[in-house]
Amino acid sequence: MNNTFDFRETWLHKINPSLKLLTMIFLFILVIFIHNLNQMILFTIMTMILFVFFTGHPYKRILLFSIPFLFIFISTTTSMIFFGKGDTTILRWGLVHVTEESLFRGIHLGFRALTYALLGLTFALTTRPVYLFYSMMQQLKLNPKYSYSFMAGIRLMPIMIEEFQHIRSAQKVRGVRTGAGMNGLFHLFKFTSIPLLSQCIRRAFRIAVAMEAKRFDYSKERTFYYKIGFSKVDVVFVGYFVVLTGLSFYLAQEFPFFPVTDVRD
């Protein structure tokens, strides 16, 4: 999540994080029940608009983050297209058997995977973890014990990355050669995980003690430095999805670009 790099703050950043999280979870579930290919594509376009234009991150970064998801899209789509079942054969070549049904099902599945990625990434790119946990404590009554543990954990991550680099260098000096391939990866894991973990466990314990020394007591009443409430953008955000989901339903019914209403048939 965005602790380290710069971005422009947009209206997506100002949405109540808990509301954003719940909406995302709802949309995740909703997507499972979309079986109409046309509707799926429209829905994906709708989330893509948010992702590309409103996360406030430079386009270069957005493109960079899109690469793995494009890969997921292509891999899920092709595997479903090439090896799926169906009656209307379009192409048969050795093991590969492309049918009309598998073609549509593949494209549909690809778009579904893409939507998940887009929703998740949009959320991650526009939500500061600290605000999310503050909001969850205030709106969802999350126990402060968990929120502050998570926030402390997030703080540890850059420290861990730095430590990992030190350990790698230190072991190069000792003449530890990990080699290439799976074997090398295993050795790398073996040699770095123990010092890294031992350091982390010690750090975590010390932070916990330090937090209690600062009178952290999760059972007590507490005030909040960040008061996170609701605003107009929350309405805009929910409205966006309500209106556009409705619109995608309507357009898919009235102006389909593929003659498929249910990819399961």
Partner: peptide, 16 residues
């Protein structure tokens, strides 16, 4: 420290 920023860390104590 359990928070990423200076003001948040001090606020953490004040919240407590």
């Amino acid at each position: 420290f359990c928070m990423p920023y200076v003001d948040e860390e001090l606020a953490f104590v004040l919240e407590n």
